[in-house]
Design a protein around this nucleic acid. Sequence first.
DNA 1: CTGAAAGCGCTTACAG
DNA 2: CTGAAAGCGCTTACAG
Lengths: 354, 354
Amino acid sequence: MKSPKVRPTPSLPRNVPAAADSPVVTLDMVARLAGVSPSTVSRILNGTAGVGLAKTEAVQEAIRKLRFKPNPIARGLAGGRTLTIGVVTQAINSPFYGETLRGIEDKLEPAGYIPIFVSGHWQEAEERKALDALVSRRVDGIIVLSGLLPDEILKSYAKTVPMVVVGRTLEGPNLFSMTFDNREGGRLATQHLIECGHTRIAFIAGDPAQPDALDRQAGYRDALEGAGLAYDPALVVPGDFTETCGLMAVGSLFDSRLPFTAIFAANDQTALGAALGLYRRNVRVPDDVSMVGFDDLAPAKFSIPPLTTIRQPVYEMGSLAAAAVLDLLRGVTPTAVLPVPQLVPRESTRRLMR
Amino acid sequence: MKSPKVRPTPSLPRNVPAAADSPVVTLDMVARLAGVSPSTVSRILNGTAGVGLAKTEAVQEAIRKLRFKPNPIARGLAGGRTLTIGVVTQAINSPFYGETLRGIEDKLEPAGYIPIFVSGHWQEAEERKALDALVSRRVDGIIVLSGLLPDEILKSYAKTVPMVVVGRTLEGPNLFSMTFDNREGGRLATQHLIECGHTRIAFIAGDPAQPDALDRQAGYRDALEGAGLAYDPALVVPGDFTETCGLMAVGSLFDSRLPFTAIFAANDQTALGAALGLYRRNVRVPDDVSMVGFDDLAPAKFSIPPLTTIRQPVYEMGSLAAAAVLDLLRGVTPTAVLPVPQLVPRESTRRLMR
DNA sequence: CTGAAAGCGCTTACAG
DNA sequence: CTGAAAGCGCTTACAG
């Protein structure tokens, strides 16, 4: 590994007084106006220690008058808490993570915490940088959404800061993890197709670097074998979770001339790409081919036809993860568990006619 | 307005030592190891002042050995910079903002800045809270993506911190704004339909609370009038930028029994909803009805059929805005200007057959 | 070129 | 219940 180059921070002129208007109100000013010591103001702010009614009111009054907003930065430095939670996501622009981030945000806000999102872009080195950036900013806790970092590395970060990991199973002090049962989801999806009478079911795989993808494929296989159907490797085509791969996959499926009447795509995006591929070839969904996706993101509901899929609780993943870090910070052991996979039947699948 | 209740911060036990392992390395430790004063370390870190070669090397060495990561928090407190840029977005889970946030992230990262995203959820009060949260965290600059806050309020925040606003035109010191020409975009979309021979063009409007929506509608009207076609209010149906409104709009269009051969939807999401509505009624796109959207988000490219739309440079909005704050911080006047609207012809529109 | 010192805005033992 | 003091980890005039 390259040893990190220590470079001077980009130096901007220090004293272009950004805008010295609106003088910043400090706790000292509040103390002076209220006629008490800074310590007292701090205590009232934090609900620490007993409160003298009269002083409390004077302080509240002063705070209001001055529109004082405590500086979380300084608070963090002094008190050891920054009221900030770091979130390592893979791509902030992913439709998948969007909902999760929202869930995190919604849960953290009422608790007075603010999330800081950093992206790993599915690259180990970047994830590491992201984690370092968070640690150096002294976030109070970290949420890691999937990612490529080895378990051991994650564990070692957990020694420095409480951490919850979504998407893998990890044990450790100051560490909590939760996973979604992708394998069961894959099984459900395939099972549904089988129940519709399909026996030639193609699978368009996800990015093999992500365990989720492998799990879904394992579920596909489980269902097949559970129904006494052969797992035919020729019917599984590689992919990477994008629409484009779905589109291409359909091409290679047709080129192979293997018969199939249904497709299970590793995620919705892949399914939508595949649907376009079928449309281009005048193959109708669900009349000619049934299709099921995975995730149940917004577009699935409004695709043509609306896509049958497996619902993944993306929003809950966020809010539960956030609740879990909050637990960790409070010193209690989190118990959150993700909802089980569920099939959302819509119009892209139908009973096989013969 | 309700005067803000000053409530004690949620109090967590202060001394559950999060995890005191991995002792945090401080600048002092580096100084000691390198045998120089903290000031010197600081100077080397910041590229401030001249460098003694020998000491510089000793310090670099120590930094590496200790894996020292300067604490941006403390840096911020002491130096007046936090290397943090606040971003007020309306909904972090919106597919629209996702790309923009990515653009911001990508531009800020190499400059050593980190973005903090806060959501306003299209509510003035929340936007205000968001802005306050950022100010109290002493972000070095703020990027505001649209929103409902009055210009005056924005200007007054700009007195405290450099600000760039995307989506409206605002002048002021420490303030820069950039807009996308939604009106021209609306005109282009409609023009395209007109050139295809359509004369009965319905418009599904966006959320009237957002200026963008109104501008697009104005563009629609411009094109109509420019071509000598009457603007028929009966052909414009209200909406709110969601798929659902597109779906409903098609319903009311058909109920009205007014003839039309094309639809211009205020955004892609609306268009996709409308497309589903048509599909449900066995109306084919583009054979029976042509459709154009607005935004050119990912799903547009893979919808069935692929959607003709107006490309909005969402990623660039982010990166240009970020570049602009960086300029402001550097004391230079930003000059960024957004790309002009462009039509992306795909398969949802075609020449009117008669 | 480089130290010693003061200070950024808060919190928290430590004494009353 | 409440002050005075020290300190969080850095930066920046101020002197050499």
